[in-house]
């Protein structure tokens, strides 16, 4: 199986939340009790039982019309996932990186301590990992069981507007770049988010922060630097393991 990727075209997203519900349904995740947050987003955040969440962000422009940004958030299935780096040290086998598809999978059989989980979550530039009360980490699985049977992930299959796309990475990249060229005329700030680093490529047309605090990875996340330094020293620690 070829390397897989998503392309999420936010210009086509109407925030119908079909993806969010299809994800819940396929993964048999229960509903969560929520409170009115003052906007249309529901639930308020991702959780161990909500792997996919359409974020609604209202932005007030002084003197202008208020703007509304929709962001169907999910795990980006990084090319080299920082969460796995941390987990490998803290809870062996808790996170797996599938070589064929590139899916980053949290092992539901491996428990992790709350303190260790905190580090895993902080390592994620997109703030995706969540933990259940039983100490099991959870997030988007790329519908691993479905894609291995040649089926589309539940969120992609259900999308009525074509905002969610999935396929072989090469084709997805072509599709994403083609669409970027198309929308550039209308939206001068259009961009593809972290294309080279992740397998879930978002097309956004404004300042990423207007969509979501963690829409695009940058160096403002403190742990990123810590992680990078840790990686730098990793060959040494590995060597120590081998000797010791």
């Amino acid at each position: 199986m070829a390397d897989k990727s998503f392309f999420i075209d936010t210009t086509k997203c109407t925030a119908c939340r079909g993806c969010q519900i299809a994800c819940k349904q396929w993964n048999k995740n229960p509903g969560t009790k929520t409170l009115q947050q003052g906007n249309h987003q529901n639930p308020a955040d991702l959780s161990a039982s909500t792997f996919k969440l359409v974020r609604f962000n209202e932005v007030e422009v002084p003197g202008g019309e208020p703007q509304w940004f929709f962001f169907p958030d999910q795990c980006r299935h990084c090319m080299s996932p920082p969460c796995k780096e941390v987990a490998d040290e803290k809870a062996k086998g808790a996170i797996i990186h599938d070589e064929k598809t590139g899916a980053v999978i949290f092992n539901p059989k491996v428990k992790i301590k709350p303190g260790d989980f905190k580090e895993v979550r902080e390592a994620c530039p997109y703030d995706i990992p969540r933990i259940s009360g039983a100490g099991i980490m959870a997030k988007c699985t790329m519908c691993f069981d479905r894609i291995n049977e040649g089926m589309l992930p539940a969120c992609v299959k259900t999308c009525p507007t074509g905002a969610m796309n999935f396929g072989d990475r090469k084709e997805i990249l072509e599709k994403a770049n083609k669409r970027l060229e198309e929308v550039k005329g209308t939206y001068k700030d259009a961009m593809l988010a972290n294309t080279d680093d992740v397998r879930v490529i978002f097309l956004i047309v404004d300042d990423p922060k207007k969509y979501h605090k963690f829409a695009v990875a940058d160096n403002t996340i403190g742990i990123t630097r810590k992680m990078a330094l840790k990686r730098l020293f990793q060959p040494l620690t590995s060597l120590r393991h081998m000797i010791g």
Binding site: C16, R17, G18, I21, A22, K157, T158, C159, P160
Partner: peptide, 8 residues
């Protein structure tokens, strides 16, 4: 395709 209601 299915919207949120259909998907549920």
């Amino acid at each position: 395709a299915l919207c949120a209601k259909g998907a549920s």
